[in-house]
């Protein structure tokens, strides 16, 4: 079983990100449990969402304290807040990079991928919402599911142009890790 913790601020789409991640894994033939942890219900407050992926039915219902994978949707959360708490050795972190926030120095036994998700999203979607780009990068960095599964999950969740553009944003995130572009 792999455990994922998503760090974001309320309103940034962490729940949708968790849902898309779980759906992509489900399409790829896995079991997935995705759930939010609601804190103080106000826009901008730090919040988490969690996902578990497994080949078997998932029974564990607690929050994720020792993630195998981390997704940081808002890098400003790394100011004075240890997003790496409990991170497992050998883990993979995908950070939606922003040049104004310093990314952490490489940590032993942890792979950190920084992806300019919001910049890519601004190019593709016209809005700085990097979630689907980051999920594309996650697929490439972890191989937990293929890009096609993720794009199918996106097409199921959204419709019309928004769906197409987000599928493209996911591809861009995927390519960013695979080819460094």
């Amino acid at each position: 079983m792999k455990e994922i913790r998503i760090h974001a601020r309320a309103g940034q789409g962490a729940i949708t990100t968790a849902l898309l991640l779980g759906t992509a894994a489900f399409i790829g033939g896995k079991y997935a449990l995705a759930f939010p942890h609601f804190g103080a219900e106000r826009m901008g407050a730090p919040m988490n969402a969690f996902v578990r992926l497994s080949d078997q039915v998932i029974r564990l219902r607690s929050q994720v304290y020792e993630p195998d994978y981390l997704i940081v949707l808002d890098p400003s959360l790394m100011r004075g807040f240890d997003v790496f708490e409990g991170f497992r050795p050998g883990g993979v972190a995908i950070i939606n990079h922003h040049e104004k926030v310093q990314c952490p120095k490489p940590i032993q036994n942890i792979k950190v991928f920084t992806v300019p998700g919001n910049d890519i999203a601004t190019e593709v979607l016209g809005r700085p919402i990097g979630n689907t780009t980051i999920l594309g990068a996650f697929a490439a960095a972890t191989n937990e599911f293929g890009l096609e599964s993720l794009q199918q999950a996106i097409l199921e969740r959204f419709s019309g142009e928004v769906a197409k553009k987000n599928a493209e944003a996911a591809r861009r995130g995927y390519e960013y890790i695979k080819k460094g572009v």
Binding site: A18, G22, F26, A32, L33, A34, F35, V57, R61
Partner: peptide
């Protein structure tokens, strides 16, 4: 509440 109502699963 939340643990099941808001959880996505198969």
């Amino acid at each position: 509440g939340y643990i099941l109502t808001h959880a996505y699963e198969v």
